[in-house]
Each structure stands twice: as C-alpha cells, then as structure tokens.
C-alpha cells in the first residue's frame, strides 16, 4: 500500500471514531492538533485501526508515537 493511501485509510478511521468529518491528517499531525484525540479516544482509534488492517500493536508501541507518521511506520512493519 502506498503511503498516501495508508494515510487516507487512517484518516477514514479517525473520521469514523471521532465522528468528525473535518479531520485532515498529515504525517506531522499529533494528538494536540486534533480535537477529541485524548487518551481514551486514542485507544478506540488503535482498536479500530487494528481491526481495519487486521494487525495487532504491542502495548508499548501504542504509547510511543509522536505523530501520525510514526503510527504509519508501525503499521507498515506489520502489513
């Protein structure tokens, strides 16, 4: 999967889970840039992404990402 496609898929998950059509992620986007991306919603996003790509993250991965790009790096290692 191309990087840009991956970003789009993740963007869809964010829109769905946070119920906000306005979300436009970039690789640099971090939790502070997105309304409602708090620690509880973070877990919901993770679970939804895991389901979408049929992967599982390790517990410490979940806490390690600084931005969407790093999350994508993790996903790519599992696809």
């Amino acid at each position: 999967m191309e990087r840009i496609e991956l970003l789009k898929s993740i963007n869809d998950v964010f829109i769905d889970v946070l119920d906000n059509e306005d979300i436009q992620l970039t690789e640099k986007t971090s939790a502070t840039d997105v309304e409602d991306w708090d620690s509880l919603n973070h877990i919901q996003l993770i679970v939804a992404i895991e389901k979408k790509f049929k992967i599982r993250f390790k517990s410490d991965e979940i806490r390690s990402w600084q931005n969407v790009g790093e999350m994508m790096d993790s996903i790519e290692t599992k696809l």
């Binding site: 679970v47 517990s59 979940i62």
Partner: peptide, 11 residues
C-alpha cells in the same frame, strides 16, 4: 480481553 487495552487503560 485485549491486553494492550488493559495495560494502557486499566480496562
């Protein structure tokens, strides 16, 4: 039960 959810949220 999902261990990563448990470890990160106590749920």
């Amino acid at each position: 039960f999902q261990s990563s959810v448990y470890v990160n949220t106590e749920m």
